[in-house]
Write a protein that binds this DNA or RNA. Structure first.
Lengths: 252, 252
DNA sequence: CTTGACCTTGACGTGGCGTCAACGTCTAGC
DNA sequence: GCTAGACGTTGACGCCACGTCAAGGTCAAG
């Protein structure tokens, strides 16, 4: 029996384009070619195509399929190799999924996290009195106004930015690099920029003593467990403090 | 601080080619371009690059990353959508892995399977007497000679071919299509071809009563549990029998 | 003769860069 | 001032398995 390219495609559940591709790469040449260039396929070609499509469904690449069909490779061996690669892929995906989940969690805790970090650890409402006591009465009002003025989009951005900074700190602390190392110092610079973005804090005042403020904050990160928790425990907070201190000494 | 393209690449753990690509697609334009065309990057660019690379590690595509960074999309929303897609991928992989495993098992049981199907269910050695009794003394000898003559490669091919045929029967029986349907009839045709390939059986003889042989085999598939097991139990064997019977009636 | 289904070859697009190729620029040493 | 070598540029192909036009030839039915 002889079929045209379309007939074969429909019979095997694929497309004529695919068959032409298989011809192009030499995987499945037509069993006969008409004088007009038309491709015709016989039963043997159908059989071969069915085997090709089976292996393709299993995810094998065309060269591997060719190797199997042309008996240069044992099917079981090829499939086992392919299985290894599939499993590796699956593990990669699993790790990526875990990372994405973790990142989403971090982002969603962003609000909460932010609440604890707006004033470097103090929520507007929850810690209002503490903030006023520590940095003065109008510091709270100014920063609160700034926060509301950001709008939803701006707040979103700010939260993501903050979460990212904290995440980087935790990663840096875990990396084993010294607080005086280049990455930690890069982070310290970003941290200071971040502090200066919030009006109402000494860091934002032109005449404020930035250096003292930064080093003082570092000490507070270690002393106050509410901060330490954000930076991955006491060890993390200590790392941040040391990095900030080194940065303040050398750059501010 | 201003860095050259290489410096930025090393700092962020990527390549200059990647940075040029990000420039080309508008994801990370250099903060400044020298008169000589050199790209220079400042701290803001470094920050942006770090966020890009983070999202890339999570598997996000460059357009999605651009949407997130340019604040057209909520990061958490983008990541959740991405997570869905990752999970779908993982499931696809899991199914594929299961299929590959199953196919490998089938192939490795191929020898055993074949032993049961060489004479449509009877191994040369194991069922020698039964074969001789059923199809005559020299049928065994001729088919045995044919089998040895195939050589390792030929036997391999034959086994794979047979396993494939049985696999297709099982799938067809499970598909719900009628035994008289086009797919089942296609399989029946292949099955008859397969039978005729083995010398020593009536199917291979020019003067043999092919029609009676085929319908008789179909009955035996149902009656003998050793066959039925290969075709997915009694229901499967019944399907094969009916398909063969319809084929014999109409085509032979 | 027309219509419409089917066939052909050729070429571009996909995603995220790796990898030449061909050539300009900068820095350091002689 | 020359040269070597490190670094920069743009341009273009390759990967992988096709999908998707585009432009045009072929064939059977009415």
């Amino acid at each position: 029996m002889e079929r045209s390219i379309q007939q074969l495609a429909r019979l095997a559940g694929t497309t004529s384009r695919t068959l032409r591709h298989y011809d192009d790469v030499g995987l499945l040449p037509p069993s006969r070619t008409g004088g007009n260039g038309y491709r015709y396929y016989d039963d043997a070609a159908l059989l071969r195509l069915q085997r090709i499509l089976l292996l393709r469904e299993l995810g094998l690449g065309l060269p591997a399929i060719a190797a199997v069909l042309d008996r240069e490779t044992d099917p079981a061996r090829a499939l086992r190799a392919h299985l290894d690669w599939l499993q590796a892929e699956q593990q990669r995906l699993a790790r990526q999924i875990a990372s994405v989940r973790h990142t989403i969690d971090t982002l969603e805790q962003g609000e909460e996290l932010m609440a604890q970090n707006m004033f470097d650890g103090f929520d507007h409402t929850q810690y209002k009195e503490e903030v006023e006591q520590r940095w003065g009465t109008d510091a709270y009002a100014r920063s609160d106004g700034w926060w509301r003025g950001l709008g939803a989009a701006g707040q979103q951005e700010w939260k993501a930015h903050s979460a990212r900074l904290i995440q980087d700190w935790v990663a840096a602390a875990a990396s084993g690099e010294a607080p005086e190392g280049p990455h930690a110092q890069e982070l310290a610079a970003r941290h200071v920029d971040w502090l200066r973005a919030v009006p109402g804090t000494p860091a934002a005042e032109p005449d404020g003593d930035l250096k003292a403020y930064v080093t003082g904050l570092g000490d507070m990160y270690v002393a106050d467990s509410r901060f330490a928790a954000n930076y991955g425990g006491e060890a993390g907070a200590t790392f941040v403090r040391d990095a900030l201190r080194a940065y303040a000494d050398q750059q501010l």
